[in-house]
């Protein structure tokens, strides 16, 4: 998978944060993980990809980041329901960005939000994923990309 393809998903997350009141977001140094031990924080929003590349891309973040992010976008209700919606929205922004960049050849699913790590169903076991840490304020989150050609 090319660097450019990965960059599209990373840009999706950055785009989301750019729409909040606290735009300052930093991307950490990407690394690899084995899919049999997926990396995840408290909540994870997953989108499925099909077409020239197949697999999943997910955004995972701790509860504290998401609570703070809700407040940053002017939402006072920080209940679990809202947090899950927010994770879904970030994943949706990633999907939207990917759709606009890749065009019709790529099929991108509606996000699914789970607590913790995605199940094996989402990640082919014998593959590796790219983990791209995303830092916002004092918090860490990550975009994890697992695609096969």
């Amino acid at each position: 998978m090319s660097e450019e393809t990965l960059q599209v998903f990373i840009d999706g997350v950055i785009n989301y944060f750019h729409h909040t009141s606290e735009k300052e977001v930093k991307v950490g140094s990407p690394y690899l993980i084995e899919n049999n031990s997926p990396a995840a924080f408290d909540y994870t929003g997953i989108i499925g990809i099909s077409g020239p590349y197949r697999g999943s891309v997910y955004f995972t973040a701790p509860k504290a980041l998401l609570t703070h992010l809700l407040l940053a976008i002017g939402e006072k209700d920080t209940s679990m329901e809202y947090i899950m919606d927010l994770v879904g929205e970030v994943a949706n922004t990633i999907a939207g960005n990917a759709r606009s960049k890749f065009g019709q050849d790529f099929l991108i699913s509606v996000p699914v939000v789970v607590e913790g790590a995605p199940s094996n169903i989402h990640l082919p076991k014998d593959l590796r994923s790219y983990v791209i840490p995303v830092y916002w304020r004092a918090y860490s989150s990550a975009v994890v990309i697992c695609l096969e050609a």
Partner: peptide
């Protein structure tokens, strides 16, 4: 240097693996 600059290195690493 920013974290994102390391992306191409991760891609190289993956290809090598």
């Amino acid at each position: 240097l920013a974290g994102n600059d390391f992306l191409k290195l991760a891609v190289h690493l993956e290809s090598l693996i």
